[in-house]
């Protein structure tokens, strides 16, 4: 009888495995399915110098930037939908404390796809003629080429292989096979491209309980999974809970007022508690 690996760890262990200066790919989208519990834990751990990649950045990245954990962000966009902009990210770019590298959404997803497959490069026509192109060419991250087959102008994009990825999933079994319900944006590419794929799960079940047809991320790709119910709060997790509109509004109000007010939010809701359950109780109060 074979045994399956047990990849379940605590959230603290998951975060402690991320060294300062790592390249971490995150997989939330604006106000939905953000790994907020993981971001809180990294901030409490005092992690710094991260390079973060997130195709459609949301609250998790804004929290990490506000918490001083991030030196560089690679993204295609960032917002909290109609709740507002990513104020820590935008402030960091304006002050020069955060290096920002911008792509189109498809171009960045394709770079992750190339990383996942071990391709030498991928190609697209997106970004041709736009102001996104020149800084990427100058940084050696994109090259304008002609198709070797028909001479069409296109771009060559190198693969992206982040050190870690973190995805907030619905259900994982103890070996890390995971189900993500709802739309998937760039979640599969993000998990597949990273050297070490980490999960935060709403639910953990025993191996064998998941229908393999429903598995979004195979455990073969996954290194560890932590169990954090409601770990996406205040962002929404499809089919489980809505975003917390009142909390998001108060977050944006603090974040948008200034760095000091943003830091006061972190002091209260992140550094002022020691677990995500304590945060959830505080946020519900």
């Amino acid at each position: 009888m074979s045994t399956r690996p047990d990849r379940v760890v605590s959230l603290r262990e998951l975060a402690a495995g991320i060294p300062d200066g790592s390249h971490v790919a995150l997989a939330g989208f604006a106000i939905t399915r953000n790994a907020v519990a993981f971001a809180h834990e990294l901030i409490r751990a005092g992690t710094s110098g991260l390079s973060v990649t997130q195709v459609f950045s949301g609250m998790e990245t804004d929290l990490l930037v506000a918490g001083g954990a991030v030196d560089r962000l690679t993204y295609a966009s960032g917002s909290l939908d109609r709740f507002g902009l990513l104020h820590a990210v935008n402030r960091g770019v304006a002050t020069g404390r955060l290096e920002l590298i911008e792509y189109s959404g498809l171009a960045l997803a394709l770079r992750l796809h190339a990383g996942a497959l071990g391709l030498p490069f991928v190609t697209t026509r997106s970004m041709l003629g736009s102001d996104l192109l020149a800084p990427l060419v100058a940084a050696g991250q994109v090259e304008q080429i002609e198709s070797p087959f028909d001479g069409a102008p296109c771009l060559a994009l190198p693969p992206l292989r982040p050190d870690f990825s973190v995805v907030h999933v619905d259900v994982a079994d103890r070996a890390g096979n995971a189900v993500v319900d709802g739309p998937l944006w760039s979640i599969p590419e993000t998990a597949r491209a990273s050297k070490v794929a980490l999960l935060v799960a709403e639910e953990i079940v025993d191996v064998g309980e998941l229908d393999p047809s429903r598995v979004t991320i195979p455990g073969s790709l996954v290194h560890a999974v932590a169990h954090v119910p409601r770990g996406g709060h205040p962002t929404a997790v499809y089919g489980r809970y809505d975003y917390d509109a009142a909390h998001l509004r108060s977050y944006v109000a603090a974040a948008g007022t200034g760095a000091e007010e943003h830091d006061a939010y972190l002091d209260r809701f992140v550094r002022g508690v020691s677990t995500f359950d304590e945060y959830l109780a505080l946020a519900a109060a």
Binding site: F29, F56, R82, L106, G182, I187, P188, Y243
Partner: peptide
């Protein structure tokens, strides 16, 4: 809905997929 990341905006969808499928 509060935007395209609001699950209310996805109601009645015929399929869920990825960004590589929609933009790609």
């Amino acid at each position: 809905s509060a935007g395209i990341a609001d699950p209310r905006m996805w109601r009645g969808a015929t399929a869920f997929g990825t960004t590589l499928e929609v933009l790609g």
